[in-house]
């Protein structure tokens, strides 16, 4: 259609003729082509620049971490190790336990809040307050979450209490808003039609949510939860504060200090013994393992949601 039409004027014969002329000579001018090339080049450069740090981090962790990526790393703790040898089994177990406990706290609470916001809250006052609270929680510095958990457990169980569970509570404060946000977005993608169809079959709303809305959104909810886990698995500061550090195995979340991978990396680097090379190698190997765990989680989250992609298309 002619330009005149898109501008809302009545097209005339002259306009049509103009359009025909510009079309026949429609090769972009030299100036425009040059500008286009410069702009494209600048964008590509910016992308490359942003990717350089990522490449460097991966390169550094790979080349330095690979030296200690041996079986002993995954079968030993640091108990009684002062020089070469030792491993991060205690930290790996700690990370899995603390992260698992965090997920168990944060996913049900976050999902419940998201269900309230999408299915029941509407324009209610409580929904507005909840949304604002989630916005604020997202921006809480992680060290503050750690301090809050530290204070809570000190009040409940005596001053200076440190445990994996306290770490999980601190991390849950960081993860809950992430889960709420991602779950809310995914639940909103479930078409209202489906809720109406479920209600029209003569069933109460909560059953429609349980049997229709949640199963339809499940892949997206899972992806959101996995991304939330990936977000907190590398947290160091709050764990340093409330889970503490130990060289020994600790399988008990409720009692005693518990090592985790990020804190392991930090302590290997910050409090080296005489054989500094051994500590550095262990720190890099720990970094490599942690990054591998995060990458696996991210890939898993990406592999899951074809069904949600379909919902997006159909909207």
């Amino acid at each position: 259609m002619s330009v005149a039409q898109t501008l809302g004027k009545q097209p005339t014969a002259a306009d049509a003729a103009d359009a025909a002329v510009t079309l026949s000579a429609s090769r972009p001018s030299l100036a425009r082509r040059t500008k286009n090339r410069i702009a494209s080049g600048a964008v590509v450069c910016a992308v490359a620049l942003a990717a350089i740090p990522l490449a460097l981090v991966i390169w550094a962790a790979l080349t330095r971490g690979i030296e200690r990526l041996d079986l002993a790393l995954f079968t030993n703790s640091m108990w009684g190790v002062v020089g070469q040898g030792g491993g991060l089994l205690h930290a790996l177990v700690g990370t899995l336990l603390v992260t698992g406990a965090t997920a168990l706290i944060a996913i049900p609470l976050g999902l419940a809040a998201a269900i309230y916001l999408t299915e029941y809250g509407g324009q209610r006052k409580l929904a507005g307050i909840t949304r604002r609270a989630v916005d604020i929680m997202v921006s809480i510095p992680s060290i503050v979450a750690g301090l809050a958990a530290y204070a809570l457990f000190s009040l409940l169980l005596g001053p200076g209490t440190r445990s994996g569970l306290a770490g999980a509570v601190a991390l849950a404060m960081i993860m809950i808003p992430v889960v709420v946000r991602s779950s809310e977005e995914v639940l909103r993608l479930v078409p209202g039609d489906l809720r109406e169809a479920g209600l029209a079959l003569g069933s109460p709303r909560w059953r429609v949510i349980r049997k229709i809305v949640l199963p339809t959104a499940l892949p997206g909810l899972t992806a959101g939860a996995v991304l939330g886990v990936a977000r907190i698995i590398g947290e160091t500061a709050p764990l340093l504060l409330v889970a503490g550090f130990t060289d020994a195995m600790n399988y008990n979340l409720a009692e005693g200090r518990m090592a985790t991978l990020p804190v392991f990396i930090y302590t290997q680097w910050s409090s080296k013994g005489l054989d500094t090379a051994a500590y550095d190698q262990r720190a890099w190997a720990g970094a490599l393992v942690l990054m591998a765990v995060v990458v696996v989680l991210q890939l898993a989250a990406r592999a899951l949601p074809p069904q949600i992609a379909k919902l997006r298309r159909n909207r």
């Binding site: 489906l194 109406e196 069933s203 229709i212 199963p215």
Partner: peptide, 29 residues
């Protein structure tokens, strides 16, 4: 609503369910 059913303008089978489960959906829910 269990006595008075409804069919909507846009076909809306439940995407997370099979054809069979869609028919049974009222009971499943």
């Amino acid at each position: 609503r269990s006595k008075v059913g409804m069919v909507f303008q846009k076909p809306n089978p439940f995407p997370a369910m099979s054809i069979k489960d869609n028919v049974l959906a009222g009971l499943i829910i």
